[in-house]
Design a binder for these strands. Structure first.
Lengths: 168, 168
DNA sequence: TTTTTTGCAAATCGTTTGCACGCTG
DNA sequence: CAGCGTGCAAACGATTTGCAAAAAA
């Protein structure tokens, strides 16, 4: 929730990771890539390409929208960023700080996102795959509903409608 | 509007369900809506708006694309159709034949979709919600990987790339 | 008749791309 | 210097919308 306006300081670990990814692919570490990586890791939570682009502009870095998209893509490939939709029709991203895989609870009332990790759930998915002789590569679990704050307050029909429009 | 000539046979149950939904909302049962409902339930599996529109055209029913989209939306609200993305950037739909909720295994090699239902998995999601005082309304679980046929055959880097592009 | 629906085409939204120029290795 | 990267603006694909004409209640 805290918006950091100061102190960029991307952890050196991330820069290093990006560097080796780029080197391995004969790609270059440009100023724009540094700046974007930095802006990404300044976000505490989820963000989208538009927001990121706005952030950069506000910070005085006029990186083009095209470059933002291209770079986000690159970061995803490098494993530095994760991409989710969270039910919306446009992509959302989050910095991959550790290797902390998690799933999401998404509030249909206020759009608040809660992250959770449940090993038993993961294990059971593995099991499902095994029983179908299916080789698991990736999975996405999104749970939509109402956070404690929004329970009772939300209009039933509005919620129904939102559910019908979800892009999941 | 044009009439279908061959063995439509939407189960009367579906028509009835649509009728009562429409009546409850003071909406009208038009020829287009009948025809589209019919086309939807003729699909065994998943389909998208474009495909459905093409089907209709091929069958001689020239329903406009706009109406297809509008009607799919309506059907989702009526609970007659379910909407998923299956990882793609456009919406996919499937007729809701019973109340058979299920999740999906999606092959990154051939796009084959396998449906599964695992009660224990559902229960565990309920549990996660409870522990977060979160009121579950809807959930979406998609597992991406390789079906038995595609295992071994798929190019590692191609798969990696597809995963990065998933819209989930 | 009154109200909802349709078709059309234009508009939107998020994202991608071709190209000429600029920068990194 | 050879490529890769960037900005720009135009292109894109999926979906939505305003409006006048057409159909249902």
């Amino acid at each position: 929730m805290t918006q950091l306006l100061e102190a960029p300081k991307t952890s050196p670990a991330e820069v290093t990771r990006l560097e080796s990814f780029l080197r391995a692919k004969n790609l270059k570490l440009t100023g724009e890539r540094r700046i974007i990586l930095d802006a990404i890791f300044r976000h505490e939570s989820h963000f989208d390409a538009e927001t990121l682009h706005a952030d950069l502009k506000e910070a005085g870095s006029d990186v083009s929208r095209a470059t933002v998209y291209r770079t986000l893509d690159l970061m995803v490939q490098a494993g530095l960023v994760r991409k989710n939709s969270l039910g919306s029709s446009h992509a959302n991203y989050e910095a991959a700080r550790n290797d902390d895989h998690h799933d999401h609870l998404i509030c249909l009332g206020c759009n608040h996102v809660i992250e959770f990790f449940q090993p038993a759930l993961e294990a059971m998915q593995e099991q499902v795959c095994q029983s179908h002789h299916f080789q698991l590569v990736h999975h996405s679990l999104q749970i939509f509903g109402l956070c404690p704050n929004c329970q009772g307050k939300a209009d039933e029909s509005v919620i129904r409608n939102r559910v019908a429009q979800l892009h999941t």
